[in-house]
Amino acid sequence: MVKKLCGDFITGFQFLTRIYVSKHADWSPEAFGRSVKFFPLVGGIIGILLAGLAYGVQQYKFEVFPMHLLAASLIIIEIVITGGLHCDGFMDTIDGVFSGRSRERMLEIMKDSRIGAFGAIGFSLLILLKYSLILDIPIGKLPAALFVMPVIGRMASVVAITKFPYARANGLGKTFFQYSDKTTIYIAGIFTLALLIPLGNTALIAGIVAISWAALVARYISNKLGGMTGDVYGAIIEVTEVAVLMAFVF
């Protein structure tokens, strides 16, 4: 049982990041579905890496380390850790949802590997917003914000996977939807609370605000597309991370 749970965690970890752990990861559809409940824990590991960098700069080199360079470095490092997976999903989603076409055509546009004007503009604005928010967060709160950000981002994807229908007949994202069981969101929620409670009320409030925002975005996109897709799951992570940073600013 423990071995199976560890295997499911590794499957989720190696899908959501580019950090190599084991060549024996289970890539079956069932393993993908079972791994969903561990997504917030994967976010926690990403958060530790980002928060550790900010904390190190804060403690040792803040006076000589430019804040603008730190903000840019944090964004780049997160993209490197995830392999840009969620960024790609965000751009594809923006291209499709804001194309003004029919539902079927939106889904076709999202499958196209090429990035359109809407996707490029949307991603540029997303990075600009993240960069600005990181600069605006008080340096003392920045490590906590950077830890909470990927945790809540992945929890938001769990909500999208388990609470909304899937729009396509097939696809990698459907394995997450199809093979997640009824307990997935509750287990993921327990993991999320366990990670956030030690950080106090600010982290919990930021989490609630960001998850609420993610649910609204997921509902809007689901109404447009008739459900979720793998690209939308990535987009949900990105917009939720921005919402977390914004909550820490305000």
Rank of each mutant, 00 (worst) to 15 (best):
I161N: 12
A210Q: 04
K130A: 01
Y186C: 09
P143H: 08
F9I: 12
I109C: 08
V97W: 09
L53E: 09
A203R: 03
V159W: 07
A210Y: 02
G89M: 06
K111I: 07
A214D: 06
L74M: 10
A210L: 08
I77R: 10
I137Q: 02
C6V: 13
I109M: 04
I45Q: 00
S113K: 13
Y179N: 10
P150G: 06
L69M: 14
R168N: 11
I45H: 00
Y55V: 08
D95K: 05
P150A: 06
F248N: 08
A169N: 14
M106G: 07
T82H: 03
L172T: 07
T17A: 04
M106R: 15
G234Q: 07
K130M: 07
L128S: 13
L142W: 05
T192C: 09
D231F: 03
I161A: 11
R105N: 10
K163A: 04
I45T: 11
K3T: 12
F147P: 03
I77K: 07
V217Y: 14
I134S: 11
G171E: 11
A169P: 01
L172E: 02
I152V: 14
S180N: 14
T229S: 09
F13D: 12
I19G: 02
V42A: 12
F15M: 12
D26V: 06
V57E: 14
I45R: 02
I79N: 14
A203L: 01
A160I: 03
G207M: 06
L142A: 09
A31P: 04
A144V: 12
A144H: 07
E241L: 03
L133Q: 04
S212N: 14
E241K: 01
E238R: 01
P165D: 00
S180I: 02
P29I: 02
S73Q: 06
R168M: 14
V242S: 09
G56H: 06
D95W: 09
M67A: 11
S124M: 02
G33L: 03
Y166Q: 04
D136Q: 11
A72W: 00
L126C: 00
P198S: 07
I94P: 02
F191I: 06
F38T: 05
L172S: 07
P150L: 07
L135P: 06
F176K: 13
S113R: 13
I190R: 08
G173T: 03
L41S: 10
G207Y: 01
S113N: 10
I46H: 06
G83R: 02
K224E: 13
V57A: 11
I152A: 03
E108H: 11
F15T: 04
G189L: 02
Y55L: 15
E238T: 01
P143G: 09
I121P: 01
F32R: 13
P143L: 08
G171R: 03
M67H: 14
K3P: 00
F90P: 01
V36P: 04
N201P: 00
G84P: 02
L193V: 13
V97G: 08
